[in-house]
């Protein structure tokens, strides 16, 4: 017993170091699973409010640019509206809509690390929950991962853990959209079968498989494609529409049918 105590006293610094190292490694490795550690994220009150304050100062410098983006988006929407042969009013039955859209501001963005997260200034108080889709006017941005009362952290598509269902526009061939951690303007689309006719410049949109995003939200265009090692699937480099280095206004999408879909899927899993 004496010797054990002596040992602990002699090596107390090394032991303390190893303890703290294992704690931090524990946090890190634990979070490599799908749902990250609950406390170590920037959607908490302290970091959220500091980012919010800093955003309050810096966003003035980008107002002109943001304005241009919003006008462009309005132009597109009006274009859609008038060319569908309708007046400038649309009738919307609020009981029958499938998707609820909320707006938010990105207050923290990163794109240089292999696992990137954004922080937005809306949280559970505004009805934001885990696994809601986040988009901008140009294309998809990511999926909500953690929420606090006033903030939420979003797993960016520039995250090596991200995996989103995507397809080639106007076809039904779908694959999964992943990121290899290399360039912030490119993602990869995998698992498109070899028989699909592809062209450089084809548009990639979100697929119908996901209960998070609605179908046909733009993602990017094909930049390059090769067959993978097994020679039966394509590995496609997709150039993003979204400039991930410069995002400010975002929309959060909630699919009202998602609980029902998840319940059905769970029932199937139970039956098997």
């Amino acid at each position: 017993m004496q010797q054990i105590i002596n040992f602990i006293i002699r090596y107390k610094i090394t032991l303390l170091y190893l303890l703290l190292l294992f704690i931090s490694l524990g946090f890190t490795i634990d979070s490599h699973s799908y749902h990250r550690s609950k406390y170590l994220n920037s959607a908490n009150l302290i970091s959220g409010s500091i980012y919010n304050a800093s955003e309050g100062i810096t966003h003035y410098f980008k107002l002109g640019e943001e304005n241009k983006k919003l006008v462009e988006e309005n132009r597109q929407l009006r274009n859609l509206l008038f060319n569908k042969g309708m007046d400038d009013t649309l009738e919307l039955d609020t009981t029958a809509i499938d998707f609820i859209i909320r707006s938010a501001k990105v207050i923290k963005n990163s794109y240089a690390s292999p696992n990137n997260y954004l922080t937005i200034n809306k949280g559970t108080n505004h009805g934001i929950k885990q696994d809601m889709g986040v988009i901008t006017a140009q294309g998809i941005l990511g999926i909500v991962e953690h929420t606090s009362k006033k903030y939420a952290s979003v797993q960016s598509i520039l995250n090596m853990k991200s995996n989103i269902n995507a397809k080639i526009k106007n076809t039904n061939y779908f694959g999964s959209l992943i990121w290899d951690g290399q360039r912030y303007d490119q993602v990869k689309l995998e698992d498109i079968p070899r028989l699909v006719p592809l062209l450089v410049g084809d548009t990639i949109v979100t697929g119908a498989m996901s209960s998070i995003f609605p179908e046909n939200i733009p993602i990017g265009t094909i930049k390059k494609f090769n067959l993978n090692e097994s020679k039966s699937f394509y590995s496609i480099d997709v150039e993003l529409f979204n400039d991930m280095t410069n995002v400010k206004n975002a929309y959060i999408i909630y699919n009202k049918n998602r609980p029902e879909i998840l319940q059905l899927e769970a029932e199937i899993a139970n039956d098997e």
Binding site: I13, T14, Y17, L20, L21, I23, S24, L25, G26, F27, T28, S31, R36, S37, L40, N41, S42, N44, I46, S47, I50, Y51, K108, S110, S113, N115, N116, Y117, T119, S153
Partner: peptide, 18 residues
């Protein structure tokens, strides 16, 4: 806490402190 990097910074700083 701020940069969504789990505990990567903590692991590296504790090592150099040691």
């Amino acid at each position: 806490f701020f940069s969504d990097t789990m505990a990567l910074h903590a692991a590296s700083t504790v090592t150099i402190a040691y």
